[in-house]
Design a binder for these strands. Structure first.
Lengths: 200, 200
DNA sequence: GGAAAAAAATAAACTAGTTTAAGAAATTAC
DNA sequence: GTAATTTCTTAAACTAGTTTATTTTTTTCC
């Protein structure tokens, strides 16, 4: 695992925010100063059930999976996050109630993390960030709603095809087991689907 | 259908907001002035797919169901709203993109509705409302996430029992068909579940 | 670089929930 | 108040996805 490259991490974060709002150099430096850096190794956790999450995470390098265990102990993956993605447990972050999610590194991973207090500080100094933040939030809410609707209205096979189309860059980085836990089926069934698809 | 009783509608709305923030009389009157009244008859719609929703709705009297049709044309109910409930299509309201939901009255229904512009006006004049609004929002997000997790991890039978326990007051007001569309199963299956339960 | 562990494939028996269809009960509408 | 429509029940055949178990392939780790 390499050392954390602050410079390129910061460049990625600024590029991310730059897609929504324009900042001068002073503002950029303020923004960057509000984040902490963190590195975690493959199979380690950023968050575990029962913990109250204080941060939102921006992935600089690596890959994370966010998942919960159901009553039967089976994992359900709610999202994968790679470079340039924001992640976290919105419900626990917002309500400051214990999380029911694991956030686990699939590879050695580097994140930049920011607390609620630092967001609030930022909003006071640079109000334009409220717009950025609301946008971030709304987009994740909307994609959450869409994913839920897919889970409701599509078969596992249809969801598998949509995943392949929408996230082709993820397939090489996640296991079939984790993909199954994301699609909501057994790994055996994914195996069968993949096999069926390759025969066409 | 009775005439809209503005006075008790307003009383209910003030009682609702009063559970979160304290307002003096001037503030109460400002708040009330930002709502429009609307009555719709059973089987009529507050919103239909393709429309961009401009309002959020507070139910004063009656009952609504919020649902969408899947690719096979089957309805999936995402929520029921009765007196003292807020409802709407958050995704369309936020993004100003066409909705994919129906909001249909199950009974003759009276609502108070407020636009995004009026919320913004309110935030400027009485900042305490930002807190109330964020709270409203966060609560609905959290319950949305919980419901999704239930759909993922519980059997239809378990979801049926949870529904009975959590919303006993709704059972007499909705059809078995709509309950089935909420639980994500066929009406026939709900019929079987009910029968099975009553034999215990 | 090879042993141990984890992941993936295959296949057969199984189950939760669907589909179809037909009759009984309850609501609605004039 | 009764005819028409909708809702609910029951039951049997069916299907998408699960479970279990065994084998093969890939990855991990010292």
């Amino acid at each position: 695992m390499n050392t954390f490259d602050s410079q390129s991490a910061h460049a990625l974060l600024l590029q991310n925010v730059g897609r929504f709002i324009e900042l001068d150099e002073t503002q950029q430096n303020l923004y960057l100063s509000l984040f902490k850096e963190k590195r975690i190794r493959r199979k380690d956790f950023l968050l575990q059930p029962g913990e109250i999450t204080r941060y939102e995470y921006f992935v600089v390098q690596g890959a994370l999976k966010v998942y919960t265990l159901d009553l039967h102990g089976k994992p359900h993956v709610s999202m994968f996050a790679i470079e340039d993605y924001w992640t976290g447990d919105m419900a626990s972050f917002l309500t400051q109630q214990p999380s029911s999610y694991f956030i686990e590194a699939l590879e050695d991973t580097e994140v930049l993390m920011i607390s609620k207090e630092n967001w609030d500080r930022l909003f006071q100094i640079i109000p334009a960030f409220e717009q950025f933040y609301r946008n971030l939030y709304q987009r994740s809410l909307v994609s959450y709603i869409q994913r839920t609707n897919q889970g409701i209205s599509l078969s596992a096979e249809e969801r598998y095809h949509i995943f392949l189309k929408k996230y082709p860059f993820l397939i090489n980085r996640i296991s079939q087991k984790d993909l199954a836990a994301y699609l909501g089926v057994t790994p055996e069934y994914v195996s069968m689907l993949r096999n069926k698809l390759s025969k066409k």
